[in-house]
């Protein structure tokens, strides 16, 4: 793209970002730039305004009756720090923080939350080997097959156990890495590498207490774990914490 007008580039990039044709690896730097690049922010917002009327081409779809109660429940767990008086935030803030940042796409793969909850119901109904009474439980499903691969159970909100429900073939030179992320965290946190077929205990001492809806996933990473500190490989298993 050498020789192309820089100015034009910003608008084209912004347009492609808004249209959504960029790949994940192309979107991420754009979102990063949006945190501080005023020209790009303006260009993106201009495209958003131009295209918004065409969102009406998608037919409205009434949400299920469960969605609002779920949102309301999540709202209650939100830290109150966000709600300083408006006078101190929107009005006086020197630079607008993040125009269009979005939580990492990581959580997007979690359309499995409800499925996990259902599977969990079944597991609990049977002869569950659950000792004591865990406050939270997560069933990690394989995204492709929707089959349950692991269960996370928490005996306290600081200590969890990851229990395999079967075996998993890890390719040569690769390893399964265990991650978690609550709704209001900026990025997932690694809980370490996992050996297929082996249960592990994890202390969450350095993390906030486990919360409802918190995401857990196992991704396939290099043998020594993700070098970036963030999941990079494909998701093998994923699920959300359900309060019991």
């Amino acid at each position: 793209m050498s020789g192309v007008d820089k100015h034009e580039d910003v608008h084209t990039l912004a347009g492609e970002y808004v249209l959504g044709t960029l790949s994940l690896s192309e979107r991420q730097p754009v979102e990063e730039r949006l945190t501080h690049d005023e020209a790009l922010q303006q260009a993106v917002m201009a495209w958003e305004e131009r295209f918004l009327p065409y969102s009406a081409l998608a037919e409205p779809m009434p949400p299920s009756d469960y969605l609002w109660p779920r949102i309301k429940r999540s709202l209650k767990t939100q830290a109150p720090v966000h709600h300083t008086p408006v006078a101190q935030t929107a009005k006086n803030r020197p630079a607008r923080p993040r125009l269009l940042n979005s939580l990492p796409a990581w959580r997007g793969a979690a359309g499995l939350g409800l499925a996990a909850a259902l599977v969990m119901g079944i597991l609990l109904a049977k002869d569950s080997p659950v000792p004591a009474t865990p406050e939270y439980m997560v069933v990690l499903l394989a995204p492709q097959t929707q089959s349950a691969g692991w269960v996370v159970q928490a005996s306290t909100r600081q200590r969890i156990q990851l229990i395999p429900l079967g075996t998993f073939e890890v390719p040569e030179g690769k390893a399964l890495e265990f991650w978690t992320k609550a709704d209001d965290w900026q990025a997932p946190v690694s809980l370490g590498l996992v050996e297929p077929g082996r249960p592990i205990h994890v202390n969450l001492d350095e993390l906030p207490p486990l919360q409802d809806n918190q995401l857990f996933e196992l991704t396939l990473e290099e043998e020594t774990g993700s070098a970036t500190g963030l999941p990079t490989g494909p998701i093998e298993f994923i699920g959300r914490a359900v309060e019991i």
Partner: peptide, 25 residues
């Protein structure tokens, strides 16, 4: 299912970031 998850997340996102919305932009 995934779409409802995303609308859930979007609502929380909107809630958390409402103060950063700048009507002049």
């Amino acid at each position: 299912g995934m779409a409802e998850d995303i609308v859930h997340d979007a609502c929380l996102n909107i809630w958390q970031r409402a103060a950063s919305f700048d009507p002049s932009k």
